[in-house]
Design a protein around this nucleic acid. Structure first.
Lengths: 340, 340
DNA sequence: CGATGCATTGCACAGCTGTGCAAGGAGACC
DNA sequence: GGTCTCCTTGCACAGCTGTGCAATGCATCG
């Protein structure tokens, strides 16, 4: 047992306003006013306070300030697998935007199960987060009820749910466009690579692609992997090879597209010579030379900016009716689709 | 102007302990005790309180609780470009670990400039974060001073700085091993692909590789791109093609390796037939068939677990001497190095 | 010089909780 | 039945801040 083992105070040396006041020879109120822009305080008093604060290393306790003002500045992000593909970029854009607006993003990296998401949400209620943003693929519908009960603004991204604000890409438009592109290129045997763990966004893309193809008199052969990732793409490719030989395939995800392409190439099937591929998301890897993937762009910065707008609006007008913001995912033409 | 535009209370409907107490017909203390495990309270009283709390949707205000206990449970993560390669996985592992331990990870996604990092750190001091974890490539040395001044535990990852705990991979060992592997394979013309924005970890890998090669009597040709990413790898490849024709190249990063490989292939140079490549990080893309990259594994889960251990230790013993944890990055053999 | 106005300051309260302390009540034991 | 003990409960304070309100002091004007 050395001297290091003795217990110490939890906040070792955080200074409070009273100590600054004592040192500056003023009241504690004066310290508070010195740190409040526009407050009624003499210039020289403020200078005295600031000097004392500087010497002691005082920083206003935002927790206490938030408790009083009833504004914690905390915003929760509930997300599953934040390291995966597009989500990583979305989380990055959201955290950056929130910080720029003076809020603190709390990233609740949680499993996909309903109980885990509910637990994360309760945690955020306990910490009086001012809003919750849910990126998780398919949150349970109970999130809306729990948020409403606590009067906590809730923003869903990529998932609509009655009674909550949400932001979504025009998945159906993009998928329809993919089918149209394939049709115009003269392909008659189309495929769809997806996963069994379908989130609402994924389902929209699937349905719209199949419907649009049907409009051209084409029945789409569908193959699925387990997850919406690289391994899932490989599984889907294997499954599709066993059942059909499409000329062009719409992958509901860039990651799936990469796995799909790699698996095809292993079987000696060249992209785009033997098979054309379109993805979705336009994550940076899509532009890598190894894939050069034609895909639909989801711009994380745009989504984040819209989320901020929605957030500000909701905080200003808590009882305004829920809003839906739709974002167009433009086609990015690259080399994975055979032309002419 | 509709009725929605009227201003409302900032926290719309958060219930406090007093309201629960009133409803349950007990004192506010009883409510507090009902929610404190092991507190002195009659079973039936606790039941009454819990029922009232359930009906009102009460959740303990952890902010106020933290203010009193002087434990905010907030832990700050200062990170630049959290969506990039290995960092995305590290952030994911850290956030998950922190949540599992009941802490709230606040992700401060900030620029790389010293002022931005200092601002983020001050923000965390203001919110009385219990600790700060810095993943940013090369934080200014002032972070240590600022943390010390406020008695805030500081954990650096991938960057050593006197007076702070830190976790690092054995970069030198790995780089030395890379040189050894190339030497044993019989390569005599070696290259190093790096970037000009060298973080301390990167510098270690560079130096050790060059030194080890020199030990075999080999002078390494070095090429650099701007950043440690895919584009940087392409730039390095272009630069290297103009100056030398190495048989084997150590890329200080998987992302750089991918860009390097793609650029080489565009020039008709096959991997591993014409050139062998080793990367660093072993992010999932390294195992993709398109690259099949031999690389050194950094396990984000291991790093996160060590960070948690360091954190707990530091919180328990604020004045213990700074610790360094070194983690071995094992070689993962794949197909990007030519054998025999 | 007296009165009025304004800028500034300090007091006290509010925001929400955990807990030491004393008091109350009930049960047990003689 | 009386007394002692223990369990339970409420009071009050602490933790840290922002701000309305009243008071103070100074300057200005008549």
């Amino acid at each position: 047992m050395t001297e290091h083992d003795k217990p110490t105070t939890p906040f070792p040396s955080f200074v409070n306003a009273q100590e600054v006041a004592d040192r500056a020879g003023v009241s504690r109120s004066a310290v508070s006013r010195a740190f409040t822009p526009g407050a009624s305080i003499a210039h020289e008093t403020r200078v005295k306070v600031m000097e004392a604060a500087e010497q002691l290393g005082y920083e206003v306790n935002d927790l206490a300030r938030g408790l009083l003002a009833r504004r914690s500045q905390l915003v929760g992000l509930i997300v599953t697998e934040p390291e995966q593909g597009f989500r990583a970029h979305l989380v990055s854009a959201l955290t950056r935007s929130l910080i720029q607006r003076g809020r603190l993003p709390v990233v609740l990296n949680t499993g996909r199960r309903a109980e885990e998401i509910a637990a994360a949400q309760k945690l955020l209620v306990g910490y009086r987060a001012e809003a919750t943003i849910v990126l998780s693929g398919s949150p349970p519908s109970s999130v809306v009820e729990l948020a409403r009960r606590n009067g906590q603004p809730l923003i869903l991204i990529g998932r609509s749910e009655a009674g909550a604000d949400h932001i979504r890409s025009r998945n159906r438009d993009a998928a329809t466009q993919a089918a149209e592109l394939f049709h115009k290129a003269g392909f008659t045997r189309l495929g769809l690579a997806s996963s069994t763990s379908g989130t609402p966004s994924v389902v929209e893309r699937e349905e719209a692609f199949v419907a649009a193809a049907l409009g051209y008199g084409i029945t789409v052969s569908i193959a699925r992997g387990d997850n919406t990732d690289y391994a899932g793409g490989r599984m889907a490719a294997t499954a599709m090879l066993a059942q059909a030989a499409p000329q062009a395939v719409f992958c509901i995800n860039d990651l799936i597209a990469f796995g799909f392409i790699d698996r095809m190439r292993e079987c000696g099937i060249a992209v785009p010579l033997d098979i054309s591929v379109i993805g979705f998301d336009d994550i940076p890897e899509a532009s890598w030379a190894a894939y050069d993937l034609t895909t639909f762009r989801q711009d994380p910065e745009v989504l984040a900016a819209q989320a901020m707008a929605l957030l500000e609006h909701r905080l200003a007008h808590p009882h305004a009716p829920p809003e839906t913001i739709e974002i167009t995912a433009p086609l990015v033409l690259r080399g994975s689709v055979r032309t002419a």
